[in-house]
Simulated scan of single mutants.
Amino acid sequence: MPKAALPYLPVPGALFAIAKPSGPPCMPMLDGIKPLINQSRLFNDPAGIEVSKQAVKKRRFKHRPGGVKIGQGGTLDPLADGVLIMGIGKATKLLQTHLDGPKTYRATALLGAETDSYDSEGRVVRTAPWKHVTRQQIEGVLDRFRGDIAQLPPIYSALKMDGKPLYWYAREGKKLPRPIEPRKVTVFSLECIDWQEGAPIEGEGDGHHFNFPANRVPDQDKETMKAVRQLIVGEGNVPGVAGELLSEAGDLPEVEEQGRPPTFKVEMRVSGGTYVRSLIHDIGHAVGSAAHVVTLSRIQQGEYHCEEQPGDPGNCVPWSVFQKAIEEHHAGGTLPAASGEWVEWEEAILDKMKMVE
Rank of each mutant, 00 (worst) to 15 (best):
M161R: 09
I88L: 11
K226I: 03
A331G: 12
G333Y: 09
G240P: 05
V321L: 12
A249Q: 07
L99A: 07
S247R: 15
K93S: 05
K53L: 14
V233Q: 09
A5K: 13
G140F: 02
G73W: 02
L30Y: 10
R64I: 11
R183W: 03
K265I: 15
K324G: 03
N237W: 02
G89L: 10
G240Y: 05
H292A: 12
V124I: 15
W195D: 07
L252W: 04
L42N: 04
E248R: 12
E50P: 02
H330C: 13
F188Y: 15
H292D: 04
P261T: 07
A291G: 05
S157G: 15
G89P: 12
Y105E: 00
E307S: 08
E50N: 07
K222V: 11
K131M: 08
D206R: 14
V233I: 14
I88M: 07
Y105F: 00
A128L: 11
Y118D: 06
L176R: 07
R260Q: 07
A199V: 08
V321Y: 03
T224D: 15
T334W: 10
T224P: 04
D100M: 12
E328A: 10
R106M: 04
E235V: 13
R123I: 14
P35D: 03
L246A: 07
R60H: 13
P182W: 01
Q151H: 03
P310D: 06
L99R: 08
K3C: 11
P102V: 11
I349A: 05
V228K: 03
L79Y: 06
I138N: 01
A19I: 09
P21R: 01
Y169F: 09
V241H: 02
F16E: 01
M355E: 13
L36S: 06
Q309G: 14
E223Q: 09
G122H: 03
D116M: 07
G207E: 13
P102I: 01
L350Y: 02
S297Q: 04
G74N: 12
